[in-house]
């Protein structure tokens, strides 16, 4: 497909005059080949291509390997690495400081699907506008290889034996908590990860990305759900996804009639979904739930934009929060007047 993108002054600079390097972070200290590094690279690419100003981005994470990764992208942005499973609450408070900021939350399956599942679902329920990435590898890496709640039943790990439980499906948990944007992807499919990230950034609400991100050290067995080899062989995309920013003209010449589906996001940008084997409408919540159920029962790794509801009011809309950052409110608008206290005293019994 082609989209017409305004030519930059220099090929290496984006519309806000920054190079890709301006979006990088510190060198990664994760294991060589860790899926999380690939995701960090796509966050860099997506933010560069979306022309985000790093100072307008704020990053949050919890505890675990995934939660370390905000160090490895957008080094100029503010970031807060909080407590295990409690990134959502931290992010919620932090985002209220300035609603014009773009928020990235990076979490893992240990962080989100166990201790943090309550906070995760409540953040989703409130529709706080931010990108919520779960780097999902089915294992606790930082404590050296224990089952996480997303590990599939029957999985064998060196120290733990066989996992007796069915997995928690993060995408499904998000969906039943009324998430307004739910996607699943695979770290081994960087193009899809990037396009899903860009659409997530444009979305006015919570955008949950459950990204299967293999742990090469503790959990990369040939046939396990969260491994590279499984993903490479079994990933089944729902569609081919492209993100078209607002104000860019969509040229559909390359698409055959009836082969694509467009979803317009709140800011006027579009997601173009090219049909693959089956019809799939990501605005149909019931279809999304059925697809997830089938995928779980059959151990299918189905990726793509699972669900989106672009016009649901965000938490900031619900709270009637001004566009000007709350953290720049002058003191004169924060402390009521002396006269108002006199009136209040008179009104008290």
């Amino acid at each position: 497909m082609t989209t017409q993108v305004a030519p930059s002054a220099s090929l290496n600079l984006n519309k806000v005059g920054l190079s890709r390097n301006d979006y990088k972070g510190a060198p990664s200290t994760l294991c060589q080949g860790c899926g999380h590094n690939g995701i960090a690279a796509q966050i860099v690419a997506a933010c560069f291509e979306m022309n985000l100003v790093p100072e307008k981005v704020v990053k949050f994470s919890g505890i675990g390997c995934s939660s370390k990764s905000p160090t490895y992208f957008l080094g100029r942005s503010f970031s807060f690495n909080g407590l295990h499973g409690r990134m959502p609450s931290l992010a919620l408070g932090g985002m209220f400081a300035d609603r014009t900021l773009k928020g990235f939350g990076v979490s893992g399956d240990g962080d989100t699907a166990s201790i943090g599942i309550g906070q995760f679902k409540h953040l989703v329920r409130r529709n706080l506008p931010m990108v919520y990435i779960v780097e999902n590898n089915g294992v606790y890496g930082l404590t050296k290889g224990q089952f996480s709640a997303t590990a599939e039943r029957g999985l064998m790990l060196k120290k733990q034996g066989t996992n007796p439980y069915l997995p928690v499906d993060i995408a499904m948990e998000a969906l039943i908590s009324n998430a307004t944007y739910v996607a699943r992807s695979f770290a081994g499919d960087p193009k899809q990860v990037k396009e899903l990230l860009k659409a997530a950034i444009a979305h006015n609400g919570i955008a949950v990305l459950d990204i299967i991100s293999p742990c090469v050290t503790f959990h990369n067995h040939e046939n396990s759900f969260h491994s590279y080899s499984f993903g490479k062989q079994h990933e089944e995309p729902l569609h081919e996804i492209s993100f078209v920013p607002a104000r860019d003209e969509i040229t559909v010449d390359d698409f055959e009639e009836g082969t694509t589906r467009e979803v317009e996001l709140h800011d006027g940008s579009h997601v173009i979904l090219k049909k693959l084997e089956k019809e799939y409408d990501p605005r149909d919540r019931w279809q999304a739930l059925r697809m997830l159920e089938e995928a779980q029962v059959n151990n299918w790794l189905i990726t793509g934009l699972i669900y989106v509801s672009p016009e649901t009011p965000s938490m900031f809309d619900i709270y009637n929060i001004p566009e000007t950052p709350l953290n720049r409110t002058p003191d004169s608008k924060l402390r009521p007047s002396r006269e108002s206290l006199d009136a209040l005293n008179d009104k008290m019994f």
């Binding site: 949050f60 807060f80 909080g82 407590l83 409690r86 959502p88 609450s89 931290l90 992010a91 919620l92 408070g93 932090g94 985002m95 209220f96 400081a97 300035d98 906070q119 709350l326 953290n327």
Partner: peptide, 11 residues
Amino acid sequence: GMAIGAGWGGL
């Protein structure tokens, strides 16, 4: 968590 996030954000 929320209160600390907001405090950190300058509220």
